[in-house]
Amino acid sequence: MEELKDKGMNSNSQYMRFVVDFHNMMVDKKITLAYEGEVTQEITKAFTSMTERNLEKVEENGKIKKKVYHVMVECLQNISKHADDESETASNNLDEGLAKTGLFLIGSDHNEYFITSGNGIANENIPALKEMIDNINSLNQDELKQLHKEKMRETAISEKGGAGLGFIDIARKTGNPLEYHFEPIDEKNSFFLLKTSINKNTAE
């Protein structure tokens, strides 16, 4: 009995220590939103309106606010549309509403806002995604504009309701390269991380 109680106390204090560390890390990295779970349209709406209000409070410049909003929507809708999620709760069905598990973080430092999204991806889909992002990162603003125009004319809305324009648009709006990482999970799957930066000082 005594032992059990000690164990409980111990794991409880370990947990509290973890929360304190977690909180310190969030404060340190100025993470204003951290989420791991199902990403749906309801979540997208809730997070974007919450962030809009937060940015309003710090009196962020209107142009930057719009860019943050824009990148958030594209990243969150990318997860719900494109994540490879085989779990039972996942939904690829537009009529029922899309739902995919993902990770979403917003942080900032003195110069930039960081928006990071993460989701599962089948390893076989990595090369095409990597090639697409590398290509976007290699283009200057004029070339991105041209690519955007071509894609917009050529592509049709997919079954999942996407236009295939998200990454191009993020790169155009932020003017910064898309940073990514693929973390191996097992033989078949990896976790895809995408980090986007939005400059605070220059709206361009």
Binding site: E74, M152, G162, A163, D169
Partner: peptide, 12 residues
């Protein structure tokens, strides 16, 4: 005032 990329395609 705002549209996502999928809507941008539909507007076109």
């Amino acid at each position: 005032t705002y549209f996502n990329t999928a809507s941008s395609k539909i507007i076109l």
